[in-house]
Nucleic acid binder design. Structure first.
Lengths: 143, 143
DNA sequence: CCAAAATATAGAGTTTGCTTTAAGTTAATT
DNA sequence: AATTAACTTAAAGCAAACTCTATATTTTGG
């Protein structure tokens, strides 16, 4: 199957402008043009766009994605670089997930604080009662 | 304790320029100045910076962080907004983690492909052998 | 006390990733 | 055939988050 730039834009969830911009940046080197100059996208191009989305959404800059594509075009002599790149990206994503989890804990703690404060109608009152509870705990032991 | 802008920059891992920029954007409204105009950071400011880091690294734009700080300054009348904001951020982070995981699967698959290709010394050969294996599986059933 | 290091303000410049505009050409519809 | 929708290139514009420059003042260490 083949698709117009507008169809692809809808499928991928970006604008036609963005697709042309990606092409200009060297991210879509396989897209052909019809006799009259219109871009004709294939399923292979959609696969590339899916890979681009994956790398982009995991934080790789467009330049990095272009590097990958350039390596792909260069052929088998760059297999190792490409493998290293994916391994590296894996590390980054895992680190990012770990960081997100850490931040999530802080956010959950804040949510607790604010739920308490909203219930009490006041931030200071919430802090005060929390302070008293902690003191009590310190004096008489837990539970 | 109190700290100079340079000390804080080192502790937080940003430049002094960035700290001044944050202040200009309204993200550090509690930082005082010495008689001669130098910024004097307190532990309270460090706590704010930690919160800023948390929100920033979970994808909140500086404007959103400023909104939170403005609400904080406004006082108890904005407790609900602040709670909603943290709940919203929690949702966003959880969604982001889920997306990262999905992308991680794709990346892991690619790593497998490339490990195989590197072993074989060729991408096409890898694809070819994979295709043959799949055909065999289709003809004779799994395992 | 003086030189070096750190800090101050104000404002211009940079990078990334689009987004919009202008001025057309091509394709689809009525 | 005419209109309108989608497409073309080229270039300018924009928002976010810094980053750097220039010039002046303050603090600090020997």
């Amino acid at each position: 199957m083949s698709y117009s730039i507008g169809q692809v834009a809808k499928m991928v969830g970006v604008t036609t402008h963005t697709l042309r911009y990606y092409e200009k940046e060297g991210l879509l080197p396989f897209v052909h043009k019809s006799g009259s100059g219109l871009r004709v996208f294939t399923d292979n191009d959609l696969n590339w766009l899916a890979m681009i989305e994956c790398l982009k959404e995991t934080g790789m800059p467009l330049k990095g994605i272009k590097q990958y594509i350039d390596w792909f075009i260069e052929g088998d002599s760059t297999l190792q670089q490409r493998l290293d790149m994916f391994r590296n990206q894996k590390q980054k994503v895992e680190a990012q997930i770990a960081l997100y989890r850490k931040h999530l804990e802080k956010i959950n703690y804040k949510i607790q604080m604010y739920e308490d404060a909203v219930k009490k109608g006041s931030w200071d009152k919430m802090l005060e009662e929390q302070r008293l509870a902690e003191e009590k705990e310190r004096r008489f032991g837990k539970k």
